[in-house]
Design a protein around this nucleic acid. Structure first.
Lengths: 237, 237
DNA sequence: CGTAAATTTGAGGTGCATCAATTAAAGTGG
DNA sequence: CCACTTTAATTGATGCACCTCAAATTTACG
């Protein structure tokens, strides 16, 4: 688990507990719902997930796509005014993840305070992505937002999950639907489809049957105003 | 400085240095620009500031409004792919702030690791706000976004800066222009004006000459889908 | 293999942007 | 404190990017 990268193995002492805390989710199954009390932190081992919030008007905002290796559910950020989670979580495909009780993390932080440094680093990485998404919905048009999102997810998969990346075709597994993409960047699924079609006809991408192929990375980076450097995790100390 | 809340006074040892590191900014003066190398962290003592990013197409996204007591410029989150700041900072009115060298913070974290806990807490608070803004630009219409922003800033001032809040009139100092509001919530200044006029005529708010009066908090909370609890800082341990 | 979900396409509508031009306010220097 | 200059607020007219509705087709999945 990325969070415990620098903690000595002996300090963890969870060899047995480890397997007990593994979960399996099928496609479109929810892990927790907005309002649920937060007892656990999670690391996604396998699959794709989303964190999202449903508004009173029925609209859904996807706050984060989770890829294998990603850490989430951290209490403070995740918890809203009511004391429960401020957002829901759902698997986009069959997924496996590992849970860790929040209360034990708190105890571990007191013993191993450098854990808090890792936590701050990870939180800042997420923050950077969140800001870039805000910039997208605030300032960019449909093509620009979609180009950015596709590249972001493409790079993240390629970086942290090489077995899901096919070098020959420059493609990755890509479970999000048009509706998912739209709810992430603030567009209707219909408009997402029209933009993807346009990008396909221009020979930039090929996005079909849960697979995304990047055909013209240059063009996409240009219009999406994307720089791979911005999704790299930076070190605090 | 909120960051050093729990650090023993003796550990800080900066009584003399303290005043040397104070800055004065006049209205619309920039503190740092996107791309500048990050040497310092800042706490805003007095005034209002914004953190923002200018895109290639000339549009500006305001990422954060800074009020007295707010901490910002923290390296990891602030730093983009190039190694410099990923955003610029500007004073909206005459402001005073205090700078603290990044390198010294890093040294202090190694000695006082609970500083990292505070850092993570503060980062998560900002993250929550950023997510709510993303939800706004992604899912809400003009009135809903503006109602939310006005309430957010109103509550933040009232909570952390009582001398800027006038209880008799239920109003606060409010330096942002229509353009600032628009660049924060993804609208043109012209449309912001039309919405504010509508809200004025409905007797919800009064927003003129750098002062914001909330006349119907209920109505604003309803349409903005705002809950005061969501801007409270939560504790990690 | 049957049913639900996602994609696809067209037509029509609208919320907000853009352009343009006037008035008011705020900042600046003498 | 006042003339001057700049910046912000204000208002109307026009346009378009994207949304919504609707219905057909394809794909996914138990």
């Amino acid at each position: 688990m990325a969070l415990f990268r620098d903690v000595p193995e002996a300090e963890l002492g969870w060899t047995q507990e480890f397997r007990d805390a593994q979960y399996q989710l099928s496609a479109r199954e929810n892990l927790f719902q907005e309002g649920d009390t937060a007892h656990s932190l999670y690391t996604l081992f396998d699959g794709w997930m989303i964190l999202f919030k449903i508004l009173a008007n029925g609209k859904r905002q996807i706050l984060r796509f989770l890829l294998p290796g990603d850490f989430f559910g951290f209490q403070v950020n995740a918890i809203g005014p009511t004391g429960g989670y401020m957002h829901s979580s759902q698997a986009l495909m069959k997924s496996t993840l590992c849970a860790f009780p929040t209360i034990r993390l708190q105890a571990m932080i007191e013993k191993q305070p450098q854990l808090a440094v890792r936590l701050a680093e990870m939180e800042m990485h997420d923050m950077t992505l969140c800001q870039y998404h805000l910039i997208g919905t605030g300032c960019k048009n449909a093509s620009e937002r979609i180009a950015f999102l596709m590249l972001e997810l493409f790079y993240r998969v390629r970086m942290q999950r090489q077995e899901d990346y096919d070098e020959a075709s420059n493609s990755i597994i890509f479970p999000p639907t048009h509706k998912d993409i739209g709810d992430a960047v603030g567009l209707s699924s219909i408009h997402v489809h029209r933009i993807l079609k346009k990008m396909g006809s221009k020979g930039w991408i090929h996005c079909q049957s849960k697979r995304l192929t990047i055909l013209d990375e240059e063009a996409l980076m240009e219009i999406g105003q994307f720089d791979p450097g911005m999704i790299l995790t930076k070190s605090l100390i």
